[in-house]
Structures are given as C-alpha cells and as structure tokens.
Design a protein around this nucleic acid. Sequence first.
DNA 1: CGTCATTAGTTTGGTACCGAACGATCTGCG
DNA 2: CGCAGATCGTTCGGTACCAAACTAATGACG
Lengths: 173, 173
Amino acid sequence: MSSNASDREEAERLLTAERDVQARLGDHPLDFASLDAISNIYRAAAAVRRRAEREVLASHGLSFGAFTILWVLWVWDEMETAQLAEECNLAKGTLTGMLNTLEKQSLVERNRIESDKRRVLVSLTDRGTEAIADVFPRFNAFEGEMSNGLSVEEKRELARLLRVVITNATDSD
Amino acid sequence: MSSNASDREEAERLLTAERDVQARLGDHPLDFASLDAISNIYRAAAAVRRRAEREVLASHGLSFGAFTILWVLWVWDEMETAQLAEECNLAKGTLTGMLNTLEKQSLVERNRIESDKRRVLVSLTDRGTEAIADVFPRFNAFEGEMSNGLSVEEKRELARLLRVVITNATDSD
DNA sequence: CGTCATTAGTTTGGTACCGAACGATCTGCG
DNA sequence: CGCAGATCGTTCGGTACCAAACTAATGACG
C-alpha cells in the first residue's frame, strides 16, 4: 500500500473540496461523519456486487440477485414469495420476474399452496441445489477476499454497525 | 426497540439455519464473519437507497444516481465524463443516459472541450445548483438519521472499515 | 503527412429493479 | 350464504444499470 506524495495531494484536494462545500452551505453545519459512513456503504456495495458478478457469478450465468434467491432458498428449503422477497431485499414485483428467469433455467420451482390458492411456495430444483452448492463456497471465499485486511473482530464490528443502519433504514417502513 | 421472546426465537431460528448450512457444506468451513459483514453491506445499501429515494429525493424527481451526479458536480464544479462516472461509481455508458435525462431537465450542461473534441466537460446549470443546494441539507440530515444510534467514533470506524472493503473490491480491477 | 493504436464518449441489447395498479382468492360480518 | 375489505402474486410502465461494440478525434511513429 503506497502512502506517498499523490496520496497526500489527494487528501489536500479533498480537504479543499470539503471546505468549499461547507462554505456553500453557509452556517448550516455539514455532518461529515454520517456522510462518509453512509456514502461508503453505497460505494462498497456497488463495488462488491460488480466484482462478484464478474468474478464468481458470471461463469454460472447468475446475477447477484439471482444468487441471493438461490442462497436463501438453500438455507430455508422453501419459502413463500412475499417472505422470499423480503429476505432478498427485493420488491415483490421484481421477484416475480427473477423467479420466471430462474424457473426457465430449471433452478427453482413454484407450487401453489392448496389450502390457500393465492400463495405460492418456491423451492430449489435438484439442478438449483447443485448450482448453489457449487457456487456458494466460491462466493464465501470471495467474501473473505473482500474483507481481507480486517480481523475477525473488525468484521463482526462492521456487521454490527451495519445492522444499526439497516434497522434505521427499515424502521417504520 | 423490543428485545423480547420473538427476537430470541428469531435468533434460534437463525442458529438452526446456520447449522444446517454448515452441515450441507460438509467439512468445508464456512466463513461466517466475512459473510455477515459483506452481506450486510448490500442489505444496508439497498435499504438506505430505497428510503432516500422515497423520503428525500422523490419530491425533487431525482433518483439516487442522479442525486449523486449533482452532488459530485456541486463539489467539484465541473468534471469530464470519464472522471464523473468513476466518482459516481457508474459505467460510462450508464452515465451517458443519466446525463441525457438531467440535461433534458436543465439541471446539467455538457460542453465539448475545444482543444480536444473527444472530451466533454459537464457542469451544473443554475437550476441544477439550486436543486442540489436545496436537497443536499435534507439528504445530509437523512444520512444522520440513518446512522442514528452510532457515536461519531463509530461512524468514523464504519467509514474506515468500509474503505478497506472498497479498496479490496476495486483493487487490480 | 498518413496510417495505426489509443482514448473519450455514445449506442445497443439486455437484465434488474421499483412503485402502482390489477385480478384472484380468502375472510369476517351481516 | 353473500358481499366488503384485506391479502397474495402478477402485470405494467418506466428508470437505472452493465458490458461490449462502435464512432470520432487524437497523437505517435514511420
């Protein structure tokens, strides 16, 4: 890791920008701590997602969202659509489309619940189980790479801090 | 916040699932610390983004990405397309489309650079400056809400931990 | 000068994703 | 029963987003 002249220049450039922004805001004080924390969440998520799709998922023809669906179904065996959408952080309309795709690929199957025909139970097919069992270890190793340089305690702390944000963002939705 | 019976049940449910997954993986050990840390990044990002769009940005007709573009231009005054895409975490093709939208709304303008006609300098219009100056304080307050319950030190720590992940995910791209 | 590799931005084709409106099914209450 | 609301999944219209192919402009080297 280089901590050199250009890093220092970059830091100065950022400080100048920070001052400029503050000036433009007048006396309304800027909450930089929150800004950094929250905006880095988005940057990290986008970067991790893109890289995962390219390096781990593309070879299996899976998008990040599709992977998540398979993973959740693998863990919980079968799940109703609404719950699955919630667990995967997707709007239910989005899930419908992705399940169509996954169904065409014979990775998942849908079954209407007899006792309540509005509801649908989604589960993995054998092919789907095979796929996620194959790709998951690679994905988990990738997660390890992405948190390289963090101790186990730091990873736990990161997860904890993020849980607070998730709660705030999900609260009284 | 309730720490009650159903929370405990939920925790047990999760532990069971964890054991099941581990069993399914056989002797290949699962890196739960990395899994939690990384997957929470994505959950947090999606939750924050959706909420920001609904509660802060929708009233201004801005998407999260569009907001980011305006914000970056506000901070840096003007910027070439490639650099702007990088700063906003967008593929350059994506940026083209979003700039078209923003241009139609008269929020940004594009100017070819005379000395090198391939390049384009993007900057805010007066309307754009007005828009971001109006919405940003609200957005920053929202970021504060999202990190509610975290001390300033914890926010800085969160930002720092995420920077490590960002570096890992961006490294040798 | 001309041609070839490089670079900047745009176009293209395709998926993911959202919110809102919808249609089907269930449930409670008269 | 029967019908008024609630609840489930799907459909619809629209944006955002990516990677890869393309186009125009530049610059380097003969």
